Amino acid sequence: MKKKQRQTWGPDQQPQQHYLVEPRYLAGGGDLRHVTEFLRASGFKDLSRPGGPLVFDSPDRTVRIGYDPFTPPGGWAIRGHATGHQEAWHAVLSPQVPVEIVAGLTDTLTKPRSAHAPNVWAPLHEQGWEAARGQHFTATSPARDAFVQFHQSGPGEAHWWAGARTEHGQTWDARFTPTTPLHLLQGFSTALADPQPAMRPLGHVPPSNRIRTTSVSVLPSELGAWQQARINAARAAAWARNTAQSGWPRTTARPHAHAGRTRTRR
């Protein structure tokens, strides 16, 4: 682990030790609230029961997102109902898929589709992932410890498959039906290839010599501000969508300064 001198903070708050983990796809599962609080703020209905799996339905009830830590193998299950020209689809992601990468998919569910045709492979290519053609089309990370594949095992038998591994073996995998909307898969691949590290608290960094870590001291107020900024962005986007759908004229909100991110490495 890389360590640098930690600054001295004021007396009002005690800094908490966290680690920036690279590559992010080997950072471990992370805090589920990164996904669930964004969904809730975006208008998804929380159908979870105390002590049970997490369940969220989209505002139009066409998509259900669940997280089940109790039933093996556990993890995320996302299902979309058939609507219009869109066939039914589903995705299954194991528990150790980092929440930042899960959010690449689930956040995209809350946004309008781009006018541009989606390209699942483009974000991977931009970050130097290597493509290989064969029976399956596969993109592999530069360190060769993560992949995305369009897997065709036979006529009419295809699925999207992604995963990561360390020296200890397979860390996680994610599978999507071939009917999964491509803009959602692009959101997933964009988050997967993102070079930005993931932050994990002390004691939640996976043991692996494939990762690089930087120790950072974070004030609770800073961490709360970063989390709240993400929630506020979801609420603002949901308000804009609802206003546009209602036909009422929109007003321009006064811009607010975003909380800065101060990092101290050690």
Rank of each mutant, 00 (worst) to 15 (best):
P112D: 09
R113A: 11
S114A: 11
A115Q: 13
A115D: 15
H116W: 01
A117P: 06
P118W: 15
P118S: 05
P118A: 10
N119E: 10
N119C: 14
N119Q: 13
V120E: 03
W121Y: 13
W121K: 06
A122Q: 14
P123T: 08
L124C: 05
L124D: 04
H125I: 15
H125C: 11
E126L: 14
E126W: 08
Q127Y: 02
Q127G: 01
Q127S: 05
G128R: 07
G128I: 08
W129Q: 00
A131P: 08
A131G: 11
A131T: 13
R133V: 12
R133S: 15
G134H: 03
Q135E: 15
Q135A: 14
T138A: 09
T138L: 11
A139P: 03
A139Q: 10
T140I: 11
T140W: 01
S141Y: 04
S141C: 10
S141V: 09
P142E: 04
D145I: 02
D145N: 12
D145K: 01
A146L: 06
A146D: 02
F150M: 09
F150W: 10
F150E: 08
H151F: 15
S153K: 09
P155D: 15
P155Y: 10
P155I: 13
P155V: 14
G156C: 05
G156P: 06
E157S: 13
A158I: 04
H159S: 10
W160F: 11
W160G: 08
A162D: 08
G163N: 07
G163W: 00
A164T: 07
R165Y: 13
T166V: 04
T166Y: 13
E167I: 05
E167A: 10
H168R: 14
H168V: 02
H168P: 13
G169V: 04
D173H: 13
A174M: 02
R175G: 01
R175C: 07
L182R: 12
H183Y: 08
L184H: 08
L184D: 01
L185F: 01
L185V: 00
Q186W: 04
Q186L: 09
S189Q: 05
T190N: 10
A191W: 03
L192K: 01
D194H: 02
D194R: 08
Q196V: 03
P197E: 00
M199G: 03
M199I: 07
L202K: 07
G203L: 00
H204L: 09
H204P: 00
V205E: 00
P207C: 03
